[in-house]
């Protein structure tokens, strides 16, 4: 499922309400099972001396008691999560020495290792190189095929078109349904207001993309 909307449209705020970090100003939030959340920005310290595997294993902290170290089972699960994002061979590498796209994949692996039924991913493709982007998209597809609910916040219209379901959001819910049904010209214009760039393909089909200057990529 894609949460589609411009920056400032409320995607991250909705995620923060779902994770309990923010109290909703109205209504209630009901969650079944645990949520795993991948924040939009990577504010991690790149000079902190941890390996890629260490970072993934951090995802299992809530299930471990203070004196309980990561055992074989946790290590195995973490390596499996790294394998899913194509970084099993980098398990012993220093996290800070990876590229931005690789770090995003490691943080996705840390989200996966939490074994939650629902994954909230805030702009997982923002600022990511094409190779990593492809790996992340394929990983998300596999997670969906396994029956996990994967909710991705994105301003990428093309990404939304390829999803099962789209929620268009710009400070309020504008549409909710299958992309072919809800991603109409009118809904997209309403979602992006004046920020939408309309591009027409060679055969005359209208294509849409959010204005580039609104992309605030992570570092």
């Amino acid at each position: 499922m894609i949460l589609l909307g411009p920056n400032g449209g409320g995607k991250t705020t909705l995620f923060r309400a779902l994770t309990g970090e923010l109290a909703p100003s109205g209504g209630t939030v009901t969650i079944r099972g645990r949520l795993a959340y991948l924040p939009q920005y990577d504010d991690s310290r790149l000079d902190f001396p941890v390996s890629v595997l260490d970072v993934v294993q951090m995802g299992t902290l809530p299930e471990r008691r203070p004196w309980q170290r990561a055992g074989k089972a946790v290590r195995s699960r973490s390596l499996e999560a790294l394998k899913r994002v194509g970084l099993a061979d980098s398990a012993k590498d220093s996290y800070g020495e990876l590229s931005g796209g690789q770090r995003r994949r490691v943080l996705l692996a840390r989200t996966i290792v939490q074994d939650s039924e629902t994954l909230l991913l805030d702009e997982p493709l923002a600022g990511v190189d094409p190779a990593s982007s492809e790996v992340i998209r394929a990983t998300l597809d596999r997670l969906r095929d396994e029956g996990r609910l994967v909710i991705v916040a994105s301003h990428d219209v093309d990404h939304a078109r390829a999803s099962d379901r789209v929620l268009c959001l710009n400070r309020k819910l504008l549409a909710n349904g299958a992309p072919t049904e809800v991603m109409t010209d009118q809904v997209l214009r309403e979602t992006y207001a004046s920020d939408l760039t309309v591009v027409t393909s060679a055969d005359g089909t209208p294509l849409f993309a959010a204005a580039e200057h609104h992309h605030h990529h992570g570092h």
Binding site: D43, R45, F48, V55, M58
Partner: peptide
């Protein structure tokens, strides 16, 4: 020794430590 992993997660990134449940 007991709080090593939690301290590491928090020092690594306080924001993400919160999101993973620390």
């Amino acid at each position: 020794s007991g709080f090593h992993d939690r301290f590491a997660a928090l020092a690594f990134d306080p924001q993400s430590a919160r999101t993973i449940g620390v």
